[in-house]
Design a protein around this nucleic acid. Structure first.
Lengths: 338, 338
DNA sequence: GTTTGGCACTCCCGGCCCGGGAGTGCCAGT
DNA sequence: ACTGGCACTCCCGGGCCGGGAGTGCCAAAC
């Protein structure tokens, strides 16, 4: 595979991304000073098509890249173009105004959508990668408690507990001390084990209440609300160029399914800095024409993922740069708030 | 205005809503046993058109209702059709599984979207219609506090406070007692007044910290995150019949703008049980072809609104019944959790 | 006076055809 | 190995046309 052939592929990808129209040999020869004629480009194109990097929508049309072609472009040809300093400054300013975790996530997802003109998805810090900062127990009525769990990433979870007996103010203080002694600073992944022993550590008269508490706590740390995600920029799906061959329907539906979104953001265990999944690499039927660019974020270690979702014909260098920059800055913020 | 003319209007609205196609005189005469011929119906139609209740998309097409026509239908003709018992049971089961306020809102908005096949919008309980259940103060570091406010509707707000001096465990206990004594059970609308005096009630050595705390508390109760809303069912915009004459773009954009959504849900001060705003009654340009059905909800008094948004050609009786039923049941749940 | 059947008229809609244009593949020449 | 030329293919948009649905009006009937 010739150097010039690679240049031709790059030209096709770049032109197609910016014009959204199949690109012909003449256009490539003229607009990118390759120093060869259109006929030569045609020969190279025939080769690239044979090799599966580009294709024709129909005979006698220009060429468009295949997923395989985009893959080669991303891996070997695209030079990531960093954000402008103005953009960079805007990111910093906008994110540093966030007042709490919810706000950080909300702002992040909007920012990503706006920077990339695509649909953005941000996962809330995953509970099983966080640790307990504090557990609070509040009496709502004498036999009804509210427990509030605050994690090191700033997530707050609350649950109600019905206790078998009425509890005095002192009892509550005691329970609060107990659970915090045991759980504070511990990783949530380890919490179930600790919680199992919780009741046995309480004084006999409190044991029943403690085990009711433990039951709800356990539910909280393995809760199904664990994987929350925020979405923004759905309107970008209707941008002229972002038109998907099918209808928007399945995409819009998928965007409301947490399960699907989590699948798109990637395995929870992946610690890769940045991932680009192109077309059918996504393994979900409705996303055959979709590219997903994701990055992990977190203070030190990865606690969640964020990403952007758009048509395979996207501006890869720009999108990758934006996702990476935002993920880095959010990580910094979480680091500071620890 | 003749009784039969009203029947003709009802027939037109019902047929148009179900078929999405202009309805002609023949269809009306046949399908709705009016006992008159098509020619007679034509005369009535001419009258209804003259009066502004229906219109022709073009000469020699059938008629479709105007917003004014829908309005008359809703006010005088539509008999609300209650949910089936199966639906009713599904609503109860689905909502009663909610584990916290967030979950209630999320489930509600999905339920509404699913029941009505439209876009659903639910406002979180408005802070200034709630009261304080409990305030929690947690030391993150000796000079950094986290305050968590829990309202009677179950909303949780958190903020960080940097204190001018390091505080001992006892100091924190004291501050916690102070703010709870002053604020517990008080309406948030009254809170600013109370907070203003907070610092003066603290012991001299805590006064600086108390006023730092008060500043953040004040910010919290008048916070701009006050009006949170949840949206679901955007995919329903792409249903065949829900096709808006323009593109989806402006609608999708509006759905991500809290300000616009709040405007659609209606003035915060409206206590009307149920509101239907048809077409240009919405006073927002992008929603000229949209109907919004909203209801207030809350334990006893209204603390927020929920609603459904769809094309003017919607199933009014069904939608109204669904919104009303869900709003009632959510109110019950909030009542129980108090 | 209201209702009805008849009838001419209007307008949309889908299918069809057609010419222009863009792009290709191939070939012979450099 | 590259280039210019050329015939070929196919999409696309515009224009044309006939069928069908629905109307408005009128004269006759109830």
């Amino acid at each position: 595979m010739d150097d010039r052939k690679l240049e031709v592929l790059r030209a096709i990808v770049e032109d197609y991304v910016s014009t959204q129209e199949p690109v012909g040999s003449k256009a490539v020869a003229q607009r990118h000073a390759l120093g060869v004629s259109a006929a030569t480009v045609r020969n190279d194109m025939a080769y690239l098509e044979e090799a599966g990097y580009i294709q024709q929508p129909h005979t006698s049309a220009g060429r468009i890249p295949t997923p395989k072609g985009y893959r080669l472009f991303v891996d070997r040809l695209g030079k990531i173009k960093p954000l402008s300093t103005a953009e960079r400054r805007a990111v910093h300013r906008f994110l540093s105004e966030a007042i709490d975790l919810d706000d950080v996530v909300t702002r992040t997802v909007r920012l990503l959508a706006q920077l990339t003109h695509q649909v953005a998805v941000v996962q809330y810090p995953s509970l099983n990668r966080s640790s307990v900062r504090h557990l609070e127990i509040v009496a709502v009525t004498p036999a009804r408690l509210m427990i509030v769990m605050i994690t090191d990433t700033g997530r707050v979870e609350q649950r109600y507990v019905e206790t078998p007996a009425e509890l005095s103010e002192d009892h509550i203080l005691e329970l609060r001390r107990l659970v915090n002694e045991q759980l504070q600073g511990k990783a949530l992944a380890d919490a179930p084990r600790i919680i199992a022993d919780l009741a046995s550590l309480a004084r006999p008269e409190l044991r029943d209440s403690a085990s009711a508490l433990a039951r709800v706590l356990l539910e909280t740390v393995v809760s199904r609300t664990e994987e929350r995600v925020a979405v923004a920029g759905a309107a970008n799906l209707t941008r002229p160029g972002n038109f998907f061959s099918g209808s928007l329907r399945p995409i819009l539906e998928a965007l409301e399914e947490e399960v699907v979104l989590m699948q798109l953001l990637g395995r929870a265990d992946s610690n890769a800095l940045l991932t680009v999944r192109i077309g059918d690499e996504n393994e979900i039927d409705d996303f055959r024409e979709t590219t997903v660019v994701t990055a992990g974020y977190g203070p030190g270690s990865v606690v969640g993922h964020m990403g952007v979702l758009g048509p395979t014909r996207m501006d890869y260098p720009g999108t990758i740069a934006a996702v990476r920059a935002v993920a880095r800055y959010v990580s910094e913020i979480l680091e500071q708030n620890r």
